[in-house]
Design a protein around this nucleic acid. Structure first.
Lengths: 342, 342
DNA sequence: CCAGTGCTGATAGACGTCTATCAAAATTTG
DNA sequence: CAAATTTTGATAGACGTCTATCAGCACTGG
């Protein structure tokens, strides 16, 4: 009924409290034989240290640093706002969160920031990654300095981070493909794509999933090479608008990142009879409006609040060296149509 | 940098530790004037009690009871398995979870179980509700005895529970309607519906949302009155099979609850050329298979693991009397197509 | 066998809060 | 104004773990 304590372990192993403590916090000065006796007692009693008591005693604090891209990306703004709220709540659990920003799409700046982080000041880092070797190297060095690292929203495959919190972007792309394919059923034509930048991993992955599905399941449609919008609505509006005007056979648009406002503006400029199905990413005030007025058919969304919570949770469990490591629920891709807006 | 403690509060208010403690745990024997001085100090210092230390000191434990329907509903089985795992993990936070089962669709049995719960043994209850007045009364009595109560998966509107953890079922129904309507685009005909039982709130709500959307957005389709499958796959297969055979104009099926296996079996019996779009609820091994082989077009899903976690979290925060009450993230309706299965 | 290590035990105090008890002070009552 | 009562303060010990220090014991090598 009541959990075993270190006292019980000491008694069961026939050693003193001090020795149990030395084993638990692996300090040296314990013979191998004694150590294993203690570990055995721990195992047979099913002892698990009371984290609350331990943290209380050592005045543990979790100092986390979140690194976000700076810029006009409205999803990132939403994420930052959620982070601010969660940071306030996290204080109650002795978790102090600092937010840093680096220019978007700038791997060098990100790597430099990572290099500047001091393990005396920071225990764990969550970052929206830019995909570059220089960043991978910086991550490895940071880990070597004893700092926990996870990626957030945009992953960094092959790097020595300890986890990723975000949606499965290949799956998101597949979802988009499946929806757009079905929405275009009965018509045959060309599909336009808009990305933020192919330098960001998440967009590259979405494109991959999208093309997979369209090629295999909807071979009657033809894909056009994606535009790079670079989070700039005017650029997106102009380029996509030109593409749509030039090619009357475009019947579908997939926008895989920021720039929804530009997409919507390009579409409202079309002649009345033209029917284009549109799937975009991220629910924002603009995409919401476009969904309601029928300009967009579906919006794929990731819940940034949940992502922030997940990253905090994951970092904390890594810092506690919990075993088994806490299983953080994957973030689902949410799908919004005009009729199920929250 | 470091949080204020009761010592700081005592000093700021010019009273002793004992008095601060009396105020914090509202024991009596404190003059109103003194109390308000202490409260003022708490406010100005921004003091928040260290829950970990408090719980350690009073050996607090959270004794929760989860009430699930018994039967062959495979979503409920999945939920039960998730609950078992989460219960094991929750032990680490001094949360002891007991699982109870009552016959499905049996409001009397549920009410009786609620009545039998002893506040000496249970601090909080999470239940999959059956919608009936007798249950509402039992909930009120339970609350009056000082037990926290939340509903899980299926809500009980108008009852004195302190929260609901589950998806928004009206929205889920709307989503289903929107998807099925779009999938049937270009064809006109009749839509069949299968529910578990209209006595369960979630199915009633899904139907509502579904009909709203179909009536207003897709008036070209005609709705047929729903079959009640009562979680019985054979019954569903027979009744839906008969309906499909008798009415060749049925082009869509919405199944709003258990019985996916029966739905799939009814559909595979159809002649080769017949094209019926199908949307069902809950991702299970059967619905997954049906999605992959093209029998189903979409599956709406709720993440039972997340629901269990949410209910535990919510109950704990209610028992801590936290203010502001913890905001538990709403459970999103997940949408699966053949191409985005996890 | 003696000095120098290495290992182990005992003890004390801390973390922030709770509970209990008793004494002292302040207030009310008669 | 004394007695009764209420309010307040002081103190001690607990919760489970951590850290530090010191003493003693068991080894090892010379």
């Amino acid at each position: 009924m009541t959990r075993p304590t270190i006292h019980d372990v000491a008694r069961a192993a026939g050693v003193s409290l001090s020795t149990v403590d030395r084993v638990l916090n692996d300090r040296d000065g314990v013979r191998e034989k004694t150590r294993s006796r203690v570990l055995e007692a721990i195992g047979s009693l099913g002892f698990e240290r009371n984290l609350a008591a331990a943290n209380l005693s050592r005045k543990r604090r979790y100092r986390l640093c979140f690194i976000l891209p700076d810029g006009q990306n409205s999803f990132m703004h939403a994420l930052e706002a959620d982070l601010a709220e969660e940071a306030a709540a996290a204080l109650r659990d002795f978790t102090v969160i600092e937010t840093r920003k680096v220019p978007a799409f700038d791997a060098g700046a990100l790597a430099e920031l990572l290099r500047s982080l001091d393990p005396e000041t920071v225990d764990g880092v969550a970052m929206v990654a830019t995909d570059a070797t220089i960043v991978r190297v910086a991550v490895r060095e940071l880990r070597a300095r004893g700092v926990a690292v996870v990626t957030l929203v945009s992953d960094l495959p092959g790097a020595e981070k300890q986890g990723f919190v975000g949606i499965d972007n290949v799956q998101a792309g597949r979802t988009a493909g499946s929806l757009l394919g079905r929405f275009c059923r009965g018509r045959t034509g060309r599909i336009a794509m808009v990305s933020g930048s192919m330098l960001v991993r998440d967009h590259a992955e979405r494109r991959l999933g999208f093309e997979q599905v369209l090629r295999t399941e909807f071979p009657e449609q033809t894909l056009i090479a994606p535009l790079e919008g670079l989070d700039d609505k005017d650029r997106v509006r102009d380029q996509l608008g030109a593409q749509l005007a030039a090619d009357p056979e475009i019947i579908g648009v997939y926008s895989m990142g920021a720039g929804n406002r530009g997409v919507a503006e390009a579409l409202v400029g079309l002649p009345a009879g033209r029917d284009v199905s549109v799937v975009v990413h991220e629910l924002t005030p603009y995409s919401r409006e476009a969904l309601l007025d029928g300009t967009f058919d579906a919006v794929l969304h990731q819940n940034s609040r949940r992502e922030v919570q997940g990253a905090i949770q994951l970092l904390r469990s890594l810092l506690d060296a919990q075993f088994p490591p806490l299983f953080v629920q994957p973030i689902p891709v949410e799908i919004y149509l005009r009729d199920n807006l929250p």
